[in-house]
């Protein structure tokens, strides 16, 4: 008797759980206006990207053309495929101290896997990922970018 009861219970619960699943997908089916897919080339003008999108690496500069990169090279060490090359110069301050400063921050977009280790490990938050994702160019040399702007300096720390 117990077996027969269990047999029909199995059928009943199977149908019930199948119906639960079908209700979910059926609800989606009858609401085609709730589509989440972005119609990309059409909505290019008002495309909403997310903050976390890893488009390309950029170095933010403030209005006085100052960046925060000290040229320590930690990002270069952490980069798994040699995308980043940090070129530094040794400047001598008036009081005779030798100080390392950033000369050129070279970023090869064509080799970047967008892992984000550089941003994560940067001790002075000098680099971030921007949302720009349309990178197509006709020459791969154009993908090698210098991130620090011409004549930019290190931002003075508030002392």
């Amino acid at each position: 008797m117990r077996e027969i009861y269990n047999y029909f219970k199995t059928i009943f619960f199977a149908l019930k759980s199948l119906w639960t699943g079908m209700k979910v997908t059926g609800a989606y089916f009858f609401k085609p206006w709730k589509i989440v897919t972005q119609q990309y080339p059409e909505n290019r003008e008002k495309l909403q990207m997310f903050e976390r999108t890893k488009g390309e690496l950029v170095m933010p500069h403030n209005e006085k053309n100052e960046h925060q990169c000290t040229g320590c090279g930690i990002c270069e060490m952490n980069c798994p495929n040699g995308t980043i090359i940090v070129k530094t110069v040794i400047n001598e301050t008036p009081d005779g101290k030798k100080k390392k400063a950033l000369d050129k921050y070279i970023y090869n977009l064509g080799m970047c896997t967008f892992c984000g280790l550089c941003v994560k490990t940067c001790p002075s938050d000098a680099i971030v990922f921007s949302n720009k994702f349309e990178h197509a160019v006709f020459n791969k040399n154009k993908l090698v970018k210098t991130l620090n702007k011409e004549g930019s300096t290190l931002k003075k720390r508030a002392e």
């Binding site: 997908t25 989606y28 089916f29 085609p32 709730k34 589509i35 989440v36 897919t37 119609q39």
Partner: peptide, 9 residues
């Protein structure tokens, strides 16, 4: 149908 069920176009 598949697209609508999966919230696609």
């Amino acid at each position: 149908v598949c697209a609508f069920i999966q919230n696609r176009v």
